[in-house]
Amino acid sequence: MNRMDELADELLQLTLQIQEQLLTEDSDPNEWLNFLDKRDIVMSQIDQLMAEGLTLSDSQKQVLQNGYQLNQKILPLMDARLQKLQGKMAVLQKSKMAVSTYNDVDTGPNGYGAFFDRRK
Protein backbone atom coordinates (compact mmCIF):
# COMPACT_ATOMS: atom_id res chain seq x y z
CA MET A 1 0.00 0.00 0.00
CA ASN A 2 1.54 3.29 -1.05
CA ARG A 3 1.21 6.74 0.53
CA MET A 4 -1.65 7.82 -1.76
CA ASP A 5 -3.66 4.71 -0.80
CA GLU A 6 -3.13 5.53 2.87
CA LEU A 7 -4.21 9.13 2.41
CA ALA A 8 -7.31 8.20 0.38
CA ASP A 9 -8.36 5.69 3.03
CA GLU A 10 -7.69 8.17 5.83
CA LEU A 11 -9.77 10.80 4.05
CA LEU A 12 -12.68 8.39 3.74
CA GLN A 13 -12.40 7.36 7.41
CA LEU A 14 -12.35 10.97 8.59
CA THR A 15 -15.42 11.71 6.48
CA LEU A 16 -17.19 8.71 8.03
CA GLN A 17 -16.27 9.98 11.51
CA ILE A 18 -17.70 13.40 10.67
CA GLN A 19 -20.93 11.76 9.55
CA GLU A 20 -21.07 9.73 12.76
CA GLN A 21 -20.62 12.90 14.82
CA LEU A 22 -23.39 14.67 12.92
CA LEU A 23 -25.79 11.78 13.36
CA THR A 24 -25.18 11.74 17.12
CA GLU A 25 -27.76 14.15 18.52
CA ASP A 26 -25.69 15.61 21.35
CA SER A 27 -22.29 15.63 19.65
CA ASP A 28 -19.92 18.52 20.29
CA PRO A 29 -19.46 20.88 17.31
CA ASN A 30 -15.82 21.25 18.31
CA GLU A 31 -15.36 17.58 17.49
CA TRP A 32 -16.72 18.23 13.99
CA LEU A 33 -14.17 21.00 13.57
CA ASN A 34 -11.40 18.72 14.79
CA PHE A 35 -12.25 16.09 12.16
CA LEU A 36 -12.68 18.75 9.47
CA ASP A 37 -9.23 20.16 10.27
CA LYS A 38 -7.67 16.71 10.09
CA ARG A 39 -9.43 16.09 6.79
CA ASP A 40 -8.15 19.37 5.37
CA ILE A 41 -4.60 18.34 6.25
CA VAL A 42 -5.04 15.01 4.46
CA MET A 43 -6.49 16.76 1.40
CA SER A 44 -3.50 19.13 1.34
CA GLN A 45 -1.16 16.14 1.44
CA ILE A 46 -3.00 14.54 -1.48
CA ASP A 47 -2.82 17.81 -3.42
CA GLN A 48 0.91 18.03 -2.77
CA LEU A 49 1.52 14.49 -3.99
CA MET A 50 -0.48 15.20 -7.13
CA ALA A 51 1.45 18.44 -7.69
CA GLU A 52 4.63 16.37 -7.55
CA GLY A 53 3.33 14.34 -10.47
CA LEU A 54 1.78 11.35 -8.72
CA THR A 55 -1.37 10.11 -10.45
CA LEU A 56 -4.36 8.37 -8.91
CA SER A 57 -5.08 4.71 -9.61
CA ASP A 58 -8.62 3.60 -10.35
CA SER A 59 -9.01 2.17 -6.83
CA GLN A 60 -7.80 5.45 -5.30
CA LYS A 61 -10.21 7.40 -7.48
CA GLN A 62 -13.04 5.13 -6.31
CA VAL A 63 -12.19 5.64 -2.63
CA LEU A 64 -12.02 9.41 -3.12
CA GLN A 65 -15.30 9.33 -5.07
CA ASN A 66 -16.96 7.46 -2.20
CA GLY A 67 -15.65 10.10 0.19
CA TYR A 68 -16.98 12.87 -2.04
CA GLN A 69 -20.44 11.28 -2.24
CA LEU A 70 -20.50 10.87 1.52
CA ASN A 71 -19.46 14.49 1.92
CA GLN A 72 -22.40 15.57 -0.26
CA LYS A 73 -24.73 13.83 2.21
CA ILE A 74 -22.95 15.36 5.20
CA LEU A 75 -23.23 19.00 4.13
CA PRO A 76 -27.04 19.22 4.56
CA LEU A 77 -26.76 17.45 7.93
CA MET A 78 -24.16 19.95 9.05
CA ASP A 79 -26.27 22.90 7.89
CA ALA A 80 -29.31 21.57 9.75
CA ARG A 81 -27.34 21.04 12.96
CA LEU A 82 -25.78 24.51 12.72
CA GLN A 83 -29.19 26.15 12.21
CA LYS A 84 -30.50 24.28 15.23
CA LEU A 85 -27.56 25.47 17.31
CA GLN A 86 -28.03 29.05 16.11
CA GLY A 87 -31.71 28.88 17.11
CA LYS A 88 -30.77 27.68 20.59
CA MET A 89 -28.19 30.44 20.88
CA ALA A 90 -30.75 33.09 19.85
CA VAL A 91 -33.23 31.88 22.49
CA LEU A 92 -30.48 31.86 25.11
CA GLN A 93 -29.42 35.39 24.15
CA LYS A 94 -33.01 36.66 24.43
CA SER A 95 -33.38 35.05 27.85
CA LYS A 96 -30.10 36.53 28.98
CA MET A 97 -31.16 39.99 27.78
CA ALA A 98 -34.51 39.76 29.58
CA VAL A 99 -32.88 38.73 32.85
CA SER A 100 -30.27 41.45 32.64
CA THR A 101 -32.96 44.08 31.91
CA TYR A 102 -34.91 43.15 35.03
CA ASN A 103 -31.76 43.01 37.15
CA ASP A 104 -30.39 46.36 35.96
CA VAL A 105 -31.57 49.05 38.40
CA ASP A 106 -30.86 51.97 36.06
CA THR A 107 -32.62 50.78 32.89
CA GLY A 108 -34.99 48.08 34.10
CA PRO A 109 -38.35 48.46 35.77
CA ASN A 110 -37.72 50.14 39.13
CA GLY A 111 -41.03 49.88 40.87
CA TYR A 112 -39.93 46.87 42.87
CA GLY A 113 -42.89 44.91 41.60
CA ALA A 114 -45.35 47.85 41.45
CA PHE A 115 -47.12 48.67 38.21
CA PHE A 116 -47.07 52.29 37.05
CA ASP A 117 -49.84 53.26 34.70
CA ARG A 118 -48.45 55.86 32.33
CA ARG A 119 -51.64 56.45 30.35
CA LYS A 120 -53.25 59.88 30.55
Rank of each mutant, 00 (worst) to 15 (best):
N103A: 02
A51I: 02
D26A: 14
L56E: 04
N34I: 00
L77D: 07
L23R: 10
E20Q: 15
L77M: 11
K61D: 15
D79L: 10
N66T: 12
T24E: 12
D79Y: 06
V63C: 05
S57H: 09
Q69E: 14
L56R: 03
A80G: 01
E31C: 10
T107M: 01
Q93S: 05
Q45R: 09
D104E: 04
Q21Y: 00
L92S: 06
D104S: 08
Q62T: 14
S44R: 11
S27N: 06
M89V: 11
G111K: 01
P76Y: 08
Q86L: 09
S57Y: 11
S57D: 13
R118P: 00
N34S: 12
T107W: 00
W32C: 13
G67L: 06
L56T: 10
A90C: 01
Q86G: 01
Q83W: 01
I46R: 03
E25H: 00
L54M: 13
F35L: 09
L82D: 12
L75G: 04
K38Q: 13
K88Y: 00
L33K: 15
N110Y: 06
E52D: 15
V91D: 12
S27T: 11
L82Y: 12
D79T: 09
L23P: 05
F115E: 07
A98S: 06
Q21I: 12
D106H: 00
E25P: 10
G53S: 07
V91S: 09
I41V: 15
R118E: 15
A98L: 04
A114L: 10
E31R: 03
S100M: 07
M97W: 05
L36M: 09
P76F: 06
Q19I: 05
Q72V: 13
Q65D: 13
Q65C: 10
L70K: 04
N71L: 06
Y102K: 02
D47P: 04
A80I: 10
M78P: 00
V99R: 04
G53I: 12
F115Y: 14
V99N: 06
D106L: 04
Y68C: 08
L22G: 09
M50W: 02
T101M: 04
Q93M: 04
S27P: 15
V42K: 05
N103W: 01
L82G: 04
D117K: 08
S95A: 11
L56N: 01
